[in-house]
Amino acid sequence: MVEISHNISLLSVCDATPTSFGSFEEFLVSLSSKIKQEGWTHIIVFRDRPIENVEKSLLNLDTKIKIVKPSKLGIINFVRFYKIIKEVQPNYVHFHFYPIYSIMNYLSFLLDVKIIYTDHMGSRKPNSIVKKIMRKPYYFTCSKFFSPGIEKIICVSEFVKSKYSKEYGINPKKMCVIYNGINTARFQKKINTKGIREKYNLKEKFIVTCVGIRFDKGPHCLVKAASLILQRVPNVQFVLVGDGKFKNYLEKLIDDHKVKDHIIMTGTLTDVTDIYSISSCVVVPSICEEAFCFIVAEAMAMEVPVIAFDSGAIKEVIHNKFQVVPKDHTVLADRVVEILTEEDTSDKKEMRAHIIENFPLEKCVNEHILLYKKLLNSK
C-alpha cells in the first residue's frame, strides 16, 4: 500500500448553516480534530456563517471556513466550486446535503479531486401515482449522465443504501455504509434535574418530549395523541422543542384539541441534553423516511425510552424494536401510556450500552479517515 503523505487536504462542502451545536456540527469538529492529528488540512464550506461556538471550535483546530450560498442554477455552483477547488487544491471534495446527481460531479474530470457524497436527509414517498411512476426512470436517466465522477457515496444507514440502489439506480460498488455517531460523553443523563424542571416550569410527574417543529418530524401526531394520553395518564406535560413556520399550525392544533395547558414549546435550544434528562420518554413521530435519526441515538444514550414511528432507518438505530410503532397517532398514544405506566426500568442501561457500542462519534470519524486513506491509494 502507498505511504500516505501528510500534505493531504479535505474540502467539506455543507449545504447547511449551523444554528446550534448539534450532532452533525460535533461530527465536523471531531473530524477536524482527527484531520489535524493526521497532519492534514480541512476546509469547510457553509451556506452562511455558523454560530460562534461552532466557528470558534473549528478555527481553534486550524480548520478554514468559507461561505458559499448555493444557487438554484447548477452551472453557477459549478463555476464557484471550480474556483474554490483551484484555490485550495484539495485531494477530496466531500459534499454533505447536496443532490448526488448534478453537474458538480464533472469537476473530478477537470481537476485532480475525488468526489464523495453523504446525504444525511430522509425522504418522502411520492404523493401521486404520476410521481411514483416517473421517479425511477428519472433517477435512472440521471445516473447515466451524472454518476461518472463520483468516487464514493457514504450512506448513513443500510436503509439509505438500499434506497439508492433500488430507486436511484446507483451502483452498489460506489456505496458504503458509515453510521452517524454521537458524542456519548456529552449525552449522559444528568442526576440533578430539579433546576431544569424549574427553568421550564415543568410540574407534572411525566414529561413526553418531541424534538423538531417541522411537518416531516410529525409533532402534530403527538399533539393529536396528547388528549388520548391525558385521558389515561392525567399528570403529563408535553415538551415540543424547535421553531419554524410549522409552529403556527401546531398552536392552532393545540387549541383545537384543548391540550394547551399541558404543552410547552421551548423554541430552538442550543443544547437539548437538559430536556432529555427530565424526559420520561422521547417521541419520534417522523412521517418522512429517516436516513438515520440523531434524536433516537441521543435520547437512548441518555437512558430515555424512545417511541418512534416505523420510519426509514429507525429500526437500525433503536435498541428495542418494540418501541417502533405504525404511523398512527392512536397507536402512538397507547404505546406512550404503556411506557409511562410500566415499572421495569432495567432496559435503560442497555439502551446506553447499545449506543456506545454501535454509534459512538469516534467510530464514525475513524471510519471516515480510513475511507479517505483507502480512496487516496486507489487508482
Rank of each mutant, 00 (worst) to 15 (best):
F215Q: 15
V211H: 00
V236H: 01
K224T: 02
A225G: 03
T266W: 11
E158D: 12
V259R: 00
F145M: 15
K224G: 00
S165Y: 15
A226T: 00
G195K: 10
F246Q: 11
K163I: 10
D255C: 09
D216I: 15
L202D: 09
E151S: 06
F238C: 01
N201E: 11
V211G: 07
D256A: 10
D261E: 08
S157R: 05
D243Q: 13
P172V: 12
P234H: 14
C176Q: 09
D243L: 07
P219R: 08
C210P: 01
G195V: 03
L228A: 10
S165D: 08
P148N: 14
M175I: 15
K152I: 02
S162L: 14
N183W: 11
V259I: 15
L250F: 04
I170M: 07
F187T: 01
D255A: 11
I150Y: 02
L228G: 06
G195E: 13
E151K: 13
V208I: 05
A226E: 00
I213W: 01
Y200R: 02
R186W: 08
Q188W: 14
V233L: 07
E167M: 13
H257M: 14
V211R: 03
Y168G: 01
K190T: 12
H220T: 05
Y200L: 03
E204W: 09
V239S: 06
S165H: 10
V160H: 02
N248M: 06
Q188I: 11
V259Q: 05
E151F: 05
E158Y: 10
C176V: 05
I207K: 03
K252N: 06
N235A: 00
Y200K: 08
T209N: 12
V156D: 00
N183F: 04
Q231T: 03
M265K: 09
K258F: 02
F145R: 06
C176E: 04
E204Y: 03
L230D: 08
T193D: 07
D243A: 12
R197F: 12
P148Y: 13
F246K: 06
L230C: 12
I196V: 05
G212P: 02
V160G: 10
F206I: 05
E158H: 05
V239N: 09
N235D: 03
G242Q: 01
E158G: 14
G149L: 07
V156S: 00
V208Q: 00
L228C: 13
G244V: 03
V239D: 02
I150E: 05
K166H: 04
K245D: 13
Y168R: 06
